[in-house]
Amino acid sequence: MYTANQLCEKIISIYPEIGECGIDINVEYNKMENTWMVHLKKGSHKLDHFLETIDADSCMEGKKCISLGLEIAQLMKNIKGEQF
């Protein structure tokens, strides 16, 4: 098993455009749902993502977190759209 901080660091290593743990991204385990909760924030944009344990395991193995990656891409698109 791994900690929330280890998962956070791994997500940032895969998606470096996110930012820093505890500032732009926060990860916590939801025992009731048996999933990881990933909270992303950039400026006024916020995103909460349920990361299934199997996807989190895949991330920790160095593979892409597909569902999270799609959410991050959408968040970054929204942020860039606001900059114009």
Score class of each variant (00 low, 15 high):
Asn5Thr: 10
Asn26Glu: 08
Ser13Val: 03
Gly62Met: 05
Ile14Tyr: 07
Glu71Gln: 13
Ile14Lys: 12
Thr35Gln: 13
Gly62Gln: 06
Lys64Tyr: 08
Val27Phe: 02
Met60Ile: 02
Gln83Ala: 14
Asn5Ser: 11
Met32Glu: 13
Met32Ala: 14
Phe50Arg: 07
Gly19Leu: 12
Asn30Ile: 03
Tyr29Trp: 14
Lys41Gly: 04
Lys42Ser: 04
Ile72Asp: 03
Asn5Arg: 15
Glu52Tyr: 08
Ile79His: 04
Glu82Gln: 15
Leu70His: 04
Phe50Tyr: 10
Lys64Ile: 10
Asn5Met: 08
Glu82Asn: 09
Ile11Met: 03
Gly43Cys: 10
Tyr29Cys: 07
Ala56Ile: 01
Tyr2Asn: 03
Met76Cys: 09
Pro16Asn: 12
Thr3Met: 14
Glu71Ala: 15
Leu51Gln: 01
Gly22Lys: 10
Asn78Cys: 09
Glu17Val: 15
Thr53Cys: 11
Gly62His: 01
Tyr15Cys: 10
His49Glu: 01
Asn34Ile: 04
Ile25Gly: 02
Ser67Trp: 06
Ile11Ser: 04
Gln74Ser: 09
Ser44His: 13
Trp36Gln: 11
Tyr15Ile: 09
Gly43Pro: 04
Thr35Ser: 08
Leu51Thr: 03
Lys64Glu: 05
Leu47Phe: 03
Asn34Leu: 15
Glu82Thr: 05
Ala56Leu: 00
Ala4His: 01
Phe84Trp: 06
Met76Ile: 15
Asn30Gln: 11
Gly19Cys: 07
Glu28Asn: 12
Lys10Gln: 09
Leu40Gln: 08
Lys64Arg: 09
His39Gln: 11
Asp24Leu: 05
Leu7His: 08
Glu52Pro: 00
Gly62Asp: 01
Val27Cys: 09
Cys21Pro: 03
Ile12Glu: 00
Asn78Trp: 07
Met37Gln: 12
Gly62Pro: 00
Glu52Met: 07
Phe50Thr: 03
Ala4Arg: 02
Thr3Ser: 15
Tyr29Arg: 13
Phe50His: 04
Glu82Ile: 06
Leu75Cys: 12
Lys31Met: 10
Met32His: 08
Ala73Thr: 11
Asn5Ile: 02
Leu47Ala: 04
Tyr2Cys: 10
Lys63Gln: 00
Ile14Gly: 06
Ile11Thr: 06
Ile66Glu: 10
Glu28Met: 07
